[in-house]
Design a protein around this nucleic acid. Structure first.
Length: 622
RNA sequence: GGGCACGUAGCCUAGCCCGGAUAUGGCGUGGGCCUCCUAAGCCCAAGAUCGGGGGUUCGAAUCCCCCCGUGCCCGCCA
């Protein structure tokens, strides 16, 4: 099934990604961030040089990372060419000379060297100092390495919020994975973060399920729908929902009963809501079990009905009716906002927020939910499918009109489709998340058995396979930008090679293997011997480790998960190069052993943090 | 019809916000590496009109305009 030979070349012991290293909120003075300190100093020295050369000139440079071997921070002088009427290359030469002069005799500098290369001024970091600082930071903070200083800012991150009427399918699986990864990023970035799941306990979907569970038995459902695909409660009970959908079409009385239940829930009728909850509770538990298997959990489940029962929804209706920014239209007793003035276009620009029977609509209640959230958090983040874009606009505009103190920032993800087209439960064209996880775990089991079958026990292999399989699924989603549409293909989703979770986990297992062996030999890590680490692969690994805080800050600030996946790969790759080049436990001297052990320990910290951010299990062996 | 998003080697993908040094990785393909801390690894090679066309600029994958393709949306559904 898989082949593990003939792989293409990887890059040489890479060091740093292109682009600016330092996100604005990583405090440079924080000793946990040597790269930030270095960049800040380089920038400051460059500005001083410019000021000395041409006083009053606005210091505008293009920042980046130089090619391999030419330093760690680059400043392109193009933007200065016009104002100084000089060639960028000449400016670079002049500035580099001045910076070099300023560095003479400087103590306590992060900058080890500066050189002009064409139109660029390239700065080299003091590598021994970087390594030393990194080993100190990781040795001191251990598993907390990468955690940014706490900030007094509360974040509510809402994600998944799938209707509790059937098993999760992979079309929506991006939501919990992206959402949970962002929750982890926010927490590590120092925010007080609450993960919320908004439970749609009103309306058609859950009413149908509840009616079915109350009126149908297994025999009837089995006859109409057939046997369940698997013995898991959400898969078993979704058939009731499917059966009721069919019955509704044939039997008008069934439709009327369900309609009555829907109406009752939407008026906030307690008895009806209770019946509905009894109907979906088991299915919902099944869905949460699937999420928990991927290590996705929530701090709070907020029921949609809350905001009908407490009157908030009615207040929203009244508030929208009273606002004067856009025209309020009526069709009978039903009310809508014409959002043409707010940039909404298309066949209809109308946003209905009240039905003719006086009840609310989903979006209206969502406005109430968001007002409530805005009252208790400084920042709101939602992860939504791209099909919710219009609704999100309606909610945002409404919140603005109602003077909400905080507006949600929305991360939209595109759909996962199948090669044969859009996923459709109705047409039986779906891949369930449970099936994907099972298949991934099964394939992982085959692999681990093939490699370690005669060394590990059955239960050890099962455990490893579970973590490798589930991790692979999470990683596959997390590594791609949310906006990209995905066509689901089994071969790709289950690829364990290259830029994939097992590569990361394997590196961690190697690290663990070395630490185990060192322990057995009685070696201890010593970060104070950092000066003994002079190999390029050691420096490259330390640089990768040092970048973690930047990655954490960036992921939270930009709401992007793929940067974390890239980073995990980068550290794993750097570690593999180090592993290739440098022996640890049997290094030449005991001092070098302890120095390298400190580096391995540092790598473990960075890899463990990356695993944690991605929600994948850091394995001791595989 | 209108809006939003996406389009980078056979396939997947980074870079796009904030224009600059030979466009990032992976899969697959062709070679090579296990007396040595796990070869789920490492090394080398081939592979790119950055969807197309205009424009701005000293310089465009990146900014602007037009077009093409794909997805999503335009319900008193959620």
């Amino acid at each position: 099934m898989w082949r593990f030979t003939g792989r293409p070349a990887g890059p040489v012991a890479t060091t740093l990604k292109s682009g600016p290293w330092v996100a604005p909120h990583v405090p440079a003075e924080n000793t946990r961030h040597p790269l930030a300190a270095f960049e800040a100093e380089a920038g400051s020295r460059l500005r001083d040089a410019l000021e000395a050369h041409a006083p009053g000139t606005e210091p505008r440079f293009v920042h980046g990372v130089p090619p391999e071997g030419q330093g760690e921070f680059a400043a392109g002088c193009f933007p200065l060419a016009k104002t100084l009427s000089a060639k960028p290359a000449d400016i670079a030469t002049t500035l580099a000379e001045r910076v070099a002069k300023g560095l003479e005799g400087a103590t306590d500098s992060w900058v080890a060297g500066v050189a002009a290369m064409g139109p660029y001024v390239n700065f080299r970091i003091d590598v021994p100092r970087l390594i030393a600082a990194t080993l100190q930071a990781t040795h001191t903070h251990g598993d907390a390495y990468g955690r940014l200083p706490e900030r007094a800012e509360k974040v509510i991150l809402e994600h998944t919020s799938a209707n509790p009427n059937g098993p999760l399918h992979v079309g929506r699986a991006r939501n919990p994975i992206i959402g949970d990864t962002l929750v982890r990023a926010y927490r590590m970035a120092g925010y007080d973060t609450e993960a919320q799941y908004y439970v749609d306990d009103m309306g058609k979907q859950v009413a149908i399920l509840a009616w079915a569970r109350a009126h149908l038995d297994e025999a009837q459902v089995g006859k109409l729908i057939g046997p369940a695909a698997r013995d898991k409660v959400d898969h078993v009970q979704v058939r009731y929902y499917q059966a009721a959908n069919r019955l509704m079409e044939e039997d008008a009385e069934v439709g009327r009963e369900i309609q009555a239940l829907i109406h009752a829930t939407e008026t906030g009728d307690d008895a009806a809501l209770e019946r509905v909850e009894e109907g979906y509770a088991d299915v919902f538990q099944g869905m949460r079990d699937s999420l928990a298997r991927m290590d996705v959990t929530f701090d709070r489940f907020i029921k949609e009905s809350t905001f009908v029962k407490n009157g908030d929804t009615q207040k929203v209706i009244e508030g929208l009716q009273a606002q004067t920014e856009v025209p309020v239209g009526a069709e009978g007793e039903a009310l809508y906002l014409d959002l043409a003035l707010k940039g909404v276009t298309g066949r209809s620009t109308r946003f209905f927020f009240r039905r003719s029977d006086g009840t609310s609509l989903y979006a209206t209640r969502d406005v109430a939910y968001h007002l409530w959230k805005a009252g208790q958090a400084d920042r709101l983040v939602n992860v939504l499918g791209e099909d919710h874009k219009l609704q999100a606009t309606q909610v945002r505009v409404s919140l603005e009109m109602l003077k909400a103190p905080t507006l949600p920032q929305v991360v939209f993800y595109s759909f996962v489709s199948l090669p044969e087209g859009k996923m459709s439960t109705r047409r039986g064209r779906v891949v369930f998340l449970d099936d994907l996880l099972d298949e991934a775990v099964e394939r992982a089991y085959v692999e681990v058995k093939k490699r370690r079958g005669d060394e590990l026990s059955e239960s050890e292999m099962r455990t490893i396979a579970e973590h490798v399989g589930v991790g692979a699924v999470r990683f596959t989603i997390a590594k791609v930008q949310a906006e990209k549409s995905i066509t689901f293909k089994w071969e790709e989703a289950l690829s364990f090679d290259g830029f994939a979770a097992p590569f990361i986990q394997y590196s961690h297992a190697r690290v663990a293997g070395i630490l185990d062996k060192a322990k057995a030999h009685g070696h201890l890590p010593d970060p104070d011997r950092a000066h003994l680490l002079v190999h390029d692969s050691e420096a490259a690994l330390a640089k990768a480790i040092a970048r973690l805080p930047v990655v954490v800050a960036d992921a939270a600030a930009k709401h992007r998960t793929h940067g974390i996946a890239d980073y995990a790969y980068e550290v794993a790759q750097a570690f593999n190069a180090f592993y290739r080049d440098c022996r640890v436990v049997d290094a030449e001297t005991p001092e070098l052993v302890s120095a390298r052990l400190a580096l391995v320990e540092a790598a473990r910290s960075a890899l463990a943090a990356a695993h944690h951010l991605l929600g994948i299990k850091a394995l001791e062996q595989m």
